[in-house]
Design a protein around this nucleic acid. Structure first.
Length: 180
DNA sequence: TACTGGATTCACT
DNA sequence: GTGAATCCAGTAA
């Protein structure tokens, strides 16, 4: 069942958890979301200080938010929080369909290395700034796939951000080989 | 107009 | 484990 824009109106941390196990489709490629990260108005988030780029985190929910980083990579987010600032970063995906296409784009044969990182999955799915600000379901489709039990979700600190390591807003599926 | 740094990845040691 | 690549957005002037 396809997930609607309204599904994203809740809290970013909650949505990040609920996105695990969902199927994501874009053009001819699809996969299962296995790792996510929630962002709100904390210091490490684009939402801490709103700018034209990050304004979408405050103005919308259920929208795609793509930004460019380190001169090389894109990161895919979904905006959340109907009346507040929030977004969920998709960190890793288990590939389902279009695997050969992904392998070509990533110049990589190892299936575990196709989407095991925010920059990697955008490269594999060919997601760029062109998808920024689109509604969920317009180009990128999220649908229910399998139910993940609470006991199968690992909650950890966010990584690589010294300012925010006290936060426990990163989620991934236990015993999954496709996380970053 | 110029400068700074980043929600990353990869190659190399 | 460490460092380079790479360019855009944000900031300050």
């Amino acid at each position: 069942m396809q997930i609607s824009k309204k599904w994203f109106e809740g809290d970013a941390v909650d949505i990040a958890k609920k996105l695990l196990g969902k199927k994501i489709e874009f053009k001819n490629c699809s996969g299962i979301i296995v790792e996510t990260e929630a962002y709100k108005t904390d210091e490490a988030s684009h939402g801490f200080k709103l700018t034209p780029r990050s304004q979408i985190m405050a103005d919308s929910y259920g929208n795609v938010y793509v930004y460019f980083i380190y001169g090389n990579y894109f990161c895919l987010n979904f905006t959340t929080n109907k009346n507040d600032v929030g977004a969920v970063l998709i960190r890793a995906i288990e590939p389902l369909e279009g695997i050969n296409t992904m392998k070509k784009r990533r110049k990589q044969d190892n299936i575990h290395n196709l989407c095991s990182g925010p920059g990697k999955l955008c490269q594999a799915f060919n997601i760029t700034k062109q998808q920024n600000n689109k509604d969920v379901g317009e180009e990128i489709i999220i649908s229910t796939h399998k139910n993940i039990k609470d006991s199968d979700i690992i909650k950890t600190k966010r990584i690589g951000i010294s300012k925010a390591t006290h936060l426990d807003w990163r989620f991934y599926i236990k015993n999954n080989n496709f996380v970053s």
